[in-house]
C-alpha cells in the first residue's frame, strides 16, 4: 500500500513531464522566437506572432513562400518549410496568448 502511494506520487511527476514533452509544431516554432520574441511577443519593428489566427498564419507563410506577399526576410524562411510544417507551427502559435 505504502509502496503504491510512492509509485503514484512518482508517476504524477512523470505524467506532468510527459504532458510537457515537446510536440513538433512547438519545436519548429521555437526557432522563430529568436526574431519574433519569447512566446511570440516582439519588441520593436518585427511583428508579434502570439495569438494570430491559425488560418492567417498559414496563408501568410504560403504567400511569403510564393512571393504573393512581399517581405524583407520571411520569404527566405518560408521557402525552407513544407505546408504540413506551416500548419503545425500555426496551430501552436495561434494558441499562444
Amino acid at each position: 500500500m505504502h509502496k503504491i502511494l510512492i509509485l503514484l506520487a512518482a508517476s504524477a511527476t512523470l505524467l506532468s513531464a510527459n504532458a510537457f514533452a515537446v510536440d513538433r509544431g512547438e519545436l519548429l516554432a521555437s526557432s522563430c522566437m529568436s526574431c519574433h520574441g519569447p512566446g511570440g511577443k516582439s519588441k520593436g519593428a518585427i511583428p508579434s506572432l502570439a495569438g494570430l489566427e491559425k488560418g492567417y498564419i498559414v496563408k501568410s507563410l504560403q504567400d511569403f513562400k510564393s512571393g504573393a506577399r512581399p517581405a524583407s526576410v520571411m520569404q527566405r524562411h518560408a521557402k525552407g518549410y513544407t505546408d504540413e510544417e506551416f500548419a503545425l507551427m500555426a496551430d501552436y502559435l495561434s494558441k499562444l496568448k
Binding site: 526574431c35 519574433h36 519593428a45 527566405r76 524562411h77 525552407g80
Partner: peptide, 23 residues
Amino acid sequence: GGGGATPQGDELNHAYAESWAQN
C-alpha cells in the same frame, strides 16, 4: 534552399536588426 543574402542595405533591415537584438 530558398535562403540568401540582401545584395544592398536599407533602412528596413536596419530597423529589423535592432528589433532582432531586443528579441
